[in-house]
């Protein structure tokens, strides 16, 4: 697992522009007296190829951060660069194109369309990318094959188990070859066996050189990543490899605010991506 130090080098071995570069990010909901500041000056840099988990209790601005990273929402102030491009102030249509090109979403509720087959669900992002039907089908089948569901491609979501549905969703996230795979509580609706399997896939993608951002409130999920960012009340309160963040019980916060950049050569703990 020596490739698990992706900070210094991109897939081709050169140092690259950070995939995610967030500085002084603020997000306020409402105005005046009723204003709620969900994110209060957050800085975060994610390099290409990192496997990062953002761990935060609910109500700590976790969802807001996920929405902003996923270009589903825009910050009130601060700057967000995605793959070197400033996306802080884009309009809806431009954000849609950015999402389509750079982000692969995996949601807690899978969000598959019930009336479409697995392969059609996987094809959806390619439809909006403007790909022709033949290429779409080829790529969707390939993505389903990667998650081991090629034989179920004509099944509808209701004919698949929860774990299988999430794998279809993962295939859908992969099919556009996105810059970032952004997973929001991907195991929230799954039993432990399926959860392990799904987390295993993220580990696989990480080892294949992909950037994965996993957002969760569960320490057991968060620690599969090679870097854990703890968030509380809209700011980052801890950042480092899981073995430093989870000291002792693995569920209590270590307290120390660690360096902003993950340390070189940090190996993920034994639990991470260990589903071969």
């Amino acid at each position: 697992m020596s490739q698990d130090s992706p900070v210094e080098q991109g897939r081709d071995g050169r140092r690259t522009v950070p995939v995610i570069e967030i500085s002084e990010l603020r997000k306020t909901y409402g105005t005046g007296e009723a204003a709620v500041e969900a994110i209060r000056g957050l800085d975060l840099v994610v390099e290409e190829g990192e496997f990062l988990s953002v761990m935060a209790p609910s109500g700590s601005g976790k969802s807001t951060l996920m929405h902003i990273i996923g270009c589903l929402d825009t910050p009130t102030s601060g700057r967000y660069r995605l793959a070197g491009r400033d996306v802080s102030n884009l309009d809806e249509a431009e954000l849609a194109r950015i999402r389509n090109r750079y982000i692969g979403f995996v949601f807690q509720q899978f969000h598959l369309l019930r009336h479409l087959t697995a392969v059609s669900n996987v094809e959806l992002p390619l439809v909006y990318a403007g790909l022709n039907p033949t290429d779409r089908r080829v790529r969707a089948i390939e993505a389903l094959r990667r998650v081991g569901l090629a034989d179920r491609m004509h099944h509808r979501p209701t004919q698949l188990s929860g774990g299988q549905q999430q794998r279809v969703a993962i295939a859908r996230a992969l099919v556009t070859d996105p810059t970032v795979i952004l997973a929001d509580e991907p195991t929230g609706n799954l039993d432990s066996a399926s959860s392990e399997e799904v987390l295993g896939w993220f580990g696989e993608f990480h080892r294949a050189g992909r950037t994965v951002v996993l957002i969760t409130h569960e320490p057991d999920v968060a620690k599969v990543a090679s870097r854990v960012v703890r968030m509380r009340d809209g700011v980052v309160v801890g950042d480092g490899p899981p073995e430093l963040i989870f000291v002792g019980t693995g569920t209590t916060f270590a307290g120390a605010t660690l360096t902003e950049q993950p340390q070189d050569g940090s190996e993920p703990s034994g639990g991470s991506a260990g589903h071969r």
Partner: peptide
Amino acid sequence: IAEIGLRKALGATPRA
């Protein structure tokens, strides 16, 4: 609503 949201997340523009 969920379908619309998903389509948008996957890259559907308001126009689409």
